[in-house]
Design a protein around this nucleic acid. Sequence first.
DNA 1: CACTGGCATGCAACTTTGTTGCAAAAAGAT
DNA 2: ATCTTTTTGCAACAAAGTTGCATGCCAGTG
Lengths: 144, 144
Amino acid sequence: MVNVFTMDAQIDEILRKNQLSVTGSRKRILELFLMSNGALAHGDIEKKTGEKFDRVTVYRTLQTFLEKGIIHNIPTADNSVLYALCKDDCSEGHHHDNHVHFICSECGKTICLADVTVPEVKLPGGFLPHEYQMVVTGLCKECR
Amino acid sequence: MVNVFTMDAQIDEILRKNQLSVTGSRKRILELFLMSNGALAHGDIEKKTGEKFDRVTVYRTLQTFLEKGIIHNIPTADNSVLYALCKDDCSEGHHHDNHVHFICSECGKTICLADVTVPEVKLPGGFLPHEYQMVVTGLCKECR
DNA sequence: CACTGGCATGCAACTTTGTTGCAAAAAGAT
DNA sequence: ATCTTTTTGCAACAAAGTTGCATGCCAGTG
Ligand SMILES: [Mn+2]
Ligand SMILES: [Mn+2]
Ligand SMILES: [Zn+2]
Ligand SMILES: [Zn+2]
Protein backbone atom coordinates (compact mmCIF):
# COMPACT_ATOMS: atom_id res chain seq x y z
CA MET A 1 0.00 0.00 0.00
CA VAL A 2 1.38 3.33 -1.07
CA ASN A 3 1.28 6.27 1.27
CA VAL A 4 -0.78 8.86 -0.58
CA PHE A 5 0.29 11.77 1.58
CA THR A 6 3.99 11.38 0.94
CA MET A 7 3.41 10.60 -2.72
CA ASP A 8 1.54 13.85 -3.18
CA ALA A 9 4.36 15.75 -1.56
CA GLN A 10 6.87 13.88 -3.70
CA ILE A 11 5.02 14.81 -6.87
CA ASP A 12 4.98 18.47 -5.91
CA GLU A 13 8.64 18.39 -5.14
CA ILE A 14 9.62 16.79 -8.45
CA LEU A 15 7.67 19.38 -10.42
CA ARG A 16 9.01 22.31 -8.39
CA LYS A 17 12.58 21.08 -8.62
CA ASN A 18 12.24 21.11 -12.39
CA GLN A 19 10.64 24.54 -12.48
CA LEU A 20 7.38 23.24 -13.83
CA SER A 21 4.05 24.65 -12.74
CA VAL A 22 1.96 22.19 -10.80
CA THR A 23 -1.04 21.31 -12.93
CA GLY A 24 -3.66 18.59 -12.87
CA SER A 25 -2.39 16.58 -15.79
CA ARG A 26 1.24 16.73 -14.71
CA LYS A 27 0.36 15.60 -11.21
CA ARG A 28 -1.80 12.75 -12.45
CA ILE A 29 0.70 11.46 -15.00
CA LEU A 30 3.55 11.67 -12.54
CA GLU A 31 1.41 9.81 -10.05
CA LEU A 32 0.87 7.03 -12.56
CA PHE A 33 4.61 6.66 -13.03
CA LEU A 34 5.23 6.60 -9.29
CA MET A 35 2.54 3.99 -8.71
CA SER A 36 3.61 1.73 -11.56
CA ASN A 37 6.76 -0.24 -10.96
CA GLY A 38 7.30 -0.58 -14.69
CA ALA A 39 7.36 1.54 -17.77
CA LEU A 40 4.35 3.16 -19.39
CA ALA A 41 3.40 3.75 -23.00
CA HIS A 42 1.44 6.75 -24.15
CA GLY A 43 -1.55 4.46 -24.62
CA ASP A 44 -1.35 3.14 -21.05
CA ILE A 45 -1.56 6.66 -19.71
CA GLU A 46 -4.50 7.54 -21.91
CA LYS A 47 -6.36 4.47 -20.69
CA LYS A 48 -5.66 5.12 -17.02
CA THR A 49 -6.57 8.79 -17.12
CA GLY A 50 -9.73 8.09 -19.09
CA GLU A 51 -11.37 11.17 -20.57
CA LYS A 52 -9.85 13.43 -17.97
CA PHE A 53 -7.18 14.94 -20.22
CA ASP A 54 -6.83 15.58 -23.90
CA ARG A 55 -4.57 13.28 -25.92
CA VAL A 56 -2.51 16.27 -26.94
CA THR A 57 -1.92 17.22 -23.32
CA VAL A 58 -0.57 13.76 -22.58
CA TYR A 59 1.83 14.00 -25.52
CA ARG A 60 3.02 17.41 -24.43
CA THR A 61 3.37 16.41 -20.80
CA LEU A 62 5.50 13.40 -21.70
CA GLN A 63 7.60 15.57 -23.98
CA THR A 64 8.14 18.06 -21.16
CA PHE A 65 9.06 15.35 -18.67
CA LEU A 66 11.53 13.90 -21.16
CA GLU A 67 13.19 17.25 -21.74
CA LYS A 68 13.45 17.92 -18.01
CA GLY A 69 14.95 14.51 -17.34
CA ILE A 70 12.06 13.37 -15.17
CA ILE A 71 11.47 10.35 -17.38
CA HIS A 72 13.60 8.50 -19.93
CA ASN A 73 12.51 6.38 -22.81
CA ILE A 74 13.30 2.78 -23.39
CA PRO A 75 14.34 1.13 -26.66
CA THR A 76 12.06 -1.62 -27.91
CA ALA A 77 12.27 -3.86 -30.94
CA ASP A 78 8.68 -3.29 -31.96
CA ASN A 79 7.47 0.22 -32.60
CA SER A 80 6.17 0.92 -29.10
CA VAL A 81 7.50 3.94 -27.22
CA LEU A 82 7.97 3.37 -23.50
CA TYR A 83 8.74 5.80 -20.72
CA ALA A 84 9.94 5.27 -17.16
CA LEU A 85 10.89 7.47 -14.24
CA CYS A 86 14.47 8.60 -13.98
CA LYS A 87 16.48 8.32 -10.85
CA ASP A 88 16.82 11.41 -8.68
CA ASP A 89 20.10 12.56 -10.12
CA CYS A 90 19.03 12.87 -13.73
CA SER A 91 18.82 16.36 -15.11
CA GLU A 92 17.90 18.12 -18.32
CA GLY A 93 19.96 16.58 -21.10
CA HIS A 94 22.14 14.53 -18.79
CA HIS A 95 20.80 11.12 -17.86
CA HIS A 96 22.36 8.54 -15.60
CA ASP A 97 19.94 5.74 -16.33
CA ASN A 98 22.51 3.35 -17.67
CA HIS A 99 20.62 0.37 -16.33
CA VAL A 100 19.26 -2.68 -18.09
CA HIS A 101 15.59 -2.89 -19.05
CA PHE A 102 13.60 -6.08 -18.92
CA ILE A 103 10.58 -6.72 -21.11
CA CYS A 104 8.34 -9.66 -20.22
CA SER A 105 7.18 -11.36 -23.38
CA GLU A 106 4.21 -12.85 -21.52
CA CYS A 107 2.56 -9.93 -19.69
CA GLY A 108 4.30 -7.20 -21.67
CA LYS A 109 5.49 -5.36 -18.60
CA THR A 110 8.71 -3.42 -18.89
CA ILE A 111 10.82 -3.09 -15.77
CA CYS A 112 13.81 -0.91 -14.98
CA LEU A 113 16.51 -3.05 -13.42
CA ALA A 114 18.01 -0.09 -11.63
CA ASP A 115 20.72 -2.17 -10.01
CA VAL A 116 21.95 -3.84 -13.18
CA THR A 117 24.39 -1.56 -14.96
CA VAL A 118 24.79 -1.81 -18.72
CA PRO A 119 28.20 -3.33 -19.46
CA GLU A 120 30.44 -1.46 -21.86
CA VAL A 121 31.73 -3.40 -24.83
CA LYS A 122 34.76 -2.88 -26.99
CA LEU A 123 33.81 -1.49 -30.39
CA PRO A 124 35.70 -1.80 -33.68
CA GLY A 125 38.06 1.09 -34.42
CA GLY A 126 36.48 4.34 -35.53
CA PHE A 127 33.29 4.20 -33.52
CA LEU A 128 33.03 6.74 -30.73
CA PRO A 129 30.49 5.47 -28.21
CA HIS A 130 28.38 7.85 -26.21
CA GLU A 131 25.67 5.79 -24.55
CA TYR A 132 25.09 2.08 -24.08
CA GLN A 133 21.57 0.68 -23.81
CA MET A 134 20.51 -2.85 -23.12
CA VAL A 135 17.14 -4.58 -23.30
CA VAL A 136 16.51 -8.11 -22.11
CA THR A 137 13.37 -9.97 -23.06
CA GLY A 138 12.11 -13.03 -21.22
CA LEU A 139 9.75 -13.96 -18.41
CA CYS A 140 9.25 -11.84 -15.31
CA LYS A 141 8.79 -13.12 -11.78
CA GLU A 142 5.03 -13.40 -12.06
CA CYS A 143 4.90 -15.04 -15.47
CA ARG A 144 7.58 -17.70 -15.29
CA MET B 1 31.36 -0.77 -56.88
CA VAL B 2 29.03 -3.67 -56.35
CA ASN B 3 28.92 -6.49 -58.83
CA VAL B 4 25.37 -6.45 -60.13
CA PHE B 5 25.51 -9.91 -61.61
CA THR B 6 26.41 -11.70 -58.41
CA MET B 7 24.03 -9.53 -56.38
CA ASP B 8 21.15 -10.49 -58.63
CA ALA B 9 22.00 -14.15 -58.23
CA GLN B 10 22.34 -13.70 -54.49
CA ILE B 11 18.89 -12.11 -54.27
CA ASP B 12 17.34 -14.99 -56.17
CA GLU B 13 19.05 -17.50 -53.96
CA ILE B 14 17.88 -15.86 -50.74
CA LEU B 15 14.27 -15.80 -51.89
CA ARG B 16 14.35 -19.39 -53.19
CA LYS B 17 16.00 -20.67 -50.04
CA ASN B 18 13.10 -19.23 -48.05
CA GLN B 19 10.46 -20.60 -50.40
CA LEU B 20 9.33 -17.19 -51.51
CA SER B 21 8.29 -16.46 -55.05
CA VAL B 22 10.62 -14.08 -56.81
CA THR B 23 8.72 -10.86 -57.42
CA GLY B 24 9.66 -7.32 -58.36
CA SER B 25 9.12 -5.72 -55.00
CA ARG B 26 10.88 -8.45 -53.07
CA LYS B 27 13.87 -8.29 -55.37
CA ARG B 28 14.08 -4.51 -55.17
CA ILE B 29 13.72 -4.31 -51.38
CA LEU B 30 16.23 -7.08 -50.84
CA GLU B 31 18.58 -5.27 -53.18
CA LEU B 32 18.27 -2.12 -51.10
CA PHE B 33 19.24 -4.05 -47.99
CA LEU B 34 22.21 -5.66 -49.72
CA MET B 35 23.45 -2.34 -51.05
CA SER B 36 23.06 -0.45 -47.80
CA ASN B 37 25.65 -1.27 -45.17
CA GLY B 38 23.27 -0.12 -42.44
CA ALA B 39 19.73 -0.56 -41.34
CA LEU B 40 16.66 0.72 -43.17
CA ALA B 41 13.39 2.11 -41.92
CA HIS B 42 10.14 1.60 -43.76
CA GLY B 43 10.30 5.24 -44.79
CA ASP B 44 13.78 4.88 -46.28
CA ILE B 45 12.56 2.08 -48.49
CA GLU B 46 9.53 4.02 -49.64
CA LYS B 47 11.76 6.95 -50.59
CA LYS B 48 14.26 4.83 -52.48
CA THR B 49 11.70 2.84 -54.42
CA GLY B 50 9.73 5.96 -55.28
CA GLU B 51 6.29 5.32 -56.73
CA LYS B 52 7.26 1.90 -57.95
CA PHE B 53 5.47 -0.09 -55.26
CA ASP B 54 2.47 0.49 -53.09
CA ARG B 55 3.02 1.36 -49.44
CA VAL B 56 1.07 -1.70 -48.42
CA THR B 57 3.33 -3.94 -50.47
CA VAL B 58 6.38 -2.59 -48.67
CA TYR B 59 4.77 -3.27 -45.29
CA ARG B 60 3.84 -6.79 -46.31
CA THR B 61 7.23 -7.52 -47.82
CA LEU B 62 9.03 -6.41 -44.65
CA GLN B 63 6.63 -8.52 -42.59
CA THR B 64 7.33 -11.55 -44.76
CA PHE B 65 11.09 -11.05 -44.59
CA LEU B 66 10.87 -10.74 -40.81
CA GLU B 67 8.89 -13.95 -40.49
CA LYS B 68 11.28 -15.83 -42.72
CA GLY B 69 14.30 -14.60 -40.81
CA ILE B 70 15.75 -12.71 -43.76
CA ILE B 71 15.79 -9.47 -41.79
CA HIS B 72 15.67 -8.63 -38.11
CA ASN B 73 14.51 -5.47 -36.43
CA ILE B 74 16.54 -3.25 -34.23
CA PRO B 75 15.41 -1.64 -30.97
CA THR B 76 15.53 2.14 -30.89
CA ALA B 77 14.73 4.60 -28.14
CA ASP B 78 12.62 6.80 -30.35
CA ASN B 79 9.63 5.35 -32.14
CA SER B 80 11.40 4.43 -35.38
CA VAL B 81 11.33 0.85 -36.58
CA LEU B 82 14.55 -0.30 -38.20
CA TYR B 83 15.33 -3.43 -40.17
CA ALA B 84 18.61 -5.01 -41.20
CA LEU B 85 19.71 -8.12 -43.03
CA CYS B 86 20.22 -11.25 -40.99
CA LYS B 87 23.29 -13.38 -41.25
CA ASP B 88 23.11 -16.52 -43.35
CA ASP B 89 22.29 -18.87 -40.54
CA CYS B 90 19.09 -17.20 -39.38
CA SER B 91 15.89 -19.08 -40.01
CA GLU B 92 12.20 -18.70 -39.45
CA GLY B 93 11.65 -17.93 -35.79
CA HIS B 94 15.21 -18.62 -34.78
CA HIS B 95 17.59 -15.70 -35.06
CA HIS B 96 21.29 -15.64 -34.26
CA ASP B 97 21.73 -11.90 -34.58
CA ASN B 98 22.94 -11.38 -31.06
CA HIS B 99 25.24 -8.58 -32.10
CA VAL B 100 25.47 -4.99 -30.96
CA HIS B 101 23.86 -2.21 -32.99
CA PHE B 102 25.40 1.21 -33.36
CA ILE B 103 23.32 4.31 -34.06
CA CYS B 104 25.18 7.45 -35.13
CA SER B 105 23.59 10.47 -33.50
CA GLU B 106 25.04 12.71 -36.20
CA CYS B 107 24.13 11.09 -39.52
CA GLY B 108 21.45 8.80 -38.10
CA LYS B 109 22.90 5.69 -39.71
CA THR B 110 22.36 2.42 -37.90
CA ILE B 111 25.04 -0.22 -38.32
CA CYS B 112 25.11 -3.89 -37.40
CA LEU B 113 28.35 -4.63 -35.55
CA ALA B 114 28.25 -8.25 -36.59
CA ASP B 115 31.48 -9.08 -34.78
CA VAL B 116 30.51 -7.59 -31.44
CA THR B 117 28.47 -10.07 -29.44
CA VAL B 118 25.97 -8.82 -26.89
CA PRO B 119 27.34 -9.65 -23.42
CA GLU B 120 25.06 -11.47 -21.02
CA VAL B 121 24.47 -9.88 -17.65
CA LYS B 122 23.42 -11.37 -14.35
CA LEU B 123 19.82 -10.51 -13.53
CA PRO B 124 18.15 -10.29 -10.12
CA GLY B 125 16.47 -13.48 -8.97
CA GLY B 126 13.18 -14.38 -10.61
CA PHE B 127 13.83 -13.03 -14.08
CA LEU B 128 14.19 -15.62 -16.80
CA PRO B 129 16.12 -14.06 -19.68
CA HIS B 130 15.47 -15.13 -23.25
CA GLU B 131 17.21 -12.61 -25.47
CA TYR B 132 19.72 -9.83 -24.87
CA GLN B 133 19.83 -6.77 -27.09
CA MET B 134 22.22 -3.89 -27.04
CA VAL B 135 22.22 -0.52 -28.77
CA VAL B 136 25.11 1.91 -28.64
CA THR B 137 24.70 5.52 -29.70
CA GLY B 138 27.59 7.80 -30.58
CA LEU B 139 29.56 8.93 -33.60
CA CYS B 140 30.38 6.71 -36.55
CA LYS B 141 33.63 6.64 -38.50
CA GLU B 142 32.53 9.28 -40.97
CA CYS B 143 31.02 11.70 -38.46
CA ARG B 144 33.58 11.82 -35.67
C1' DC C 1 -7.27 38.32 -1.46
C1' DA C 2 -7.55 40.29 -6.13
C1' DC C 3 -4.89 41.26 -10.39
C1' DT C 4 -2.21 40.00 -14.14
C1' DG C 5 1.39 38.07 -17.46
C1' DG C 6 2.82 33.95 -19.10
C1' DC C 7 2.44 29.20 -19.44
C1' DA C 8 -0.58 25.04 -20.04
C1' DT C 9 -4.66 23.07 -21.86
C1' DG C 10 -8.44 21.75 -25.03
C1' DC C 11 -10.22 21.77 -29.41
C1' DA C 12 -10.12 21.34 -34.29
C1' DA C 13 -7.93 20.28 -38.23
C1' DC C 14 -4.39 17.91 -40.27
C1' DT C 15 -0.41 14.62 -41.37
C1' DT C 16 1.79 10.38 -40.91
C1' DT C 17 1.83 5.63 -40.09
C1' DG C 18 -0.08 1.22 -40.17
C1' DT C 19 -4.12 -2.27 -41.16
C1' DT C 20 -7.77 -4.90 -43.66
C1' DG C 21 -10.78 -6.82 -47.50
C1' DC C 22 -11.10 -7.71 -52.02
C1' DA C 23 -10.48 -7.90 -57.03
C1' DA C 24 -6.87 -7.97 -60.57
C1' DA C 25 -2.30 -9.42 -61.81
C1' DA C 26 1.68 -12.09 -61.66
C1' DA C 27 4.33 -16.34 -60.38
C1' DG C 28 5.04 -21.20 -60.26
C1' DA C 29 3.58 -25.78 -61.36
C1' DT C 30 1.75 -29.21 -64.68
C1' DA D 1 -0.59 -22.98 -72.71
C1' DT D 2 -3.52 -23.55 -68.82
C1' DC D 3 -4.56 -23.80 -64.12
C1' DT D 4 -3.82 -22.83 -59.18
C1' DT D 5 -1.89 -20.22 -55.71
C1' DT D 6 0.34 -16.30 -54.16
C1' DT D 7 1.22 -11.46 -54.45
C1' DT D 8 -0.04 -6.89 -55.53
C1' DG D 9 -2.64 -2.43 -55.80
C1' DC D 10 -6.48 0.05 -54.57
C1' DA D 11 -9.71 1.91 -51.45
C1' DA D 12 -11.27 2.62 -47.18
C1' DC D 13 -10.25 2.72 -42.63
C1' DA D 14 -7.92 3.07 -37.91
C1' DA D 15 -4.38 4.54 -35.03
C1' DA D 16 -0.72 7.62 -33.78
C1' DG D 17 1.28 11.97 -33.64
C1' DT D 18 1.55 17.23 -34.85
C1' DT D 19 0.32 22.19 -35.12
C1' DG D 20 -2.14 26.75 -34.47
C1' DC D 21 -4.94 29.23 -31.80
C1' DA D 22 -8.29 30.80 -28.36
C1' DT D 23 -9.38 29.97 -23.58
C1' DG D 24 -8.23 28.82 -18.86
C1' DC D 25 -5.30 28.16 -15.10
C1' DC D 26 -0.96 28.87 -12.32
C1' DA D 27 2.37 31.54 -9.83
C1' DG D 28 3.95 35.70 -8.48
C1' DT D 29 2.99 40.62 -7.12
C1' DG D 30 0.98 44.06 -4.40
MN1 LIG E 1 14.76 2.65 -16.87
MN1 LIG F 1 21.80 -6.31 -36.86
ZN1 LIG G 1 5.42 -10.95 -17.01
ZN1 LIG H 1 27.48 9.04 -38.63
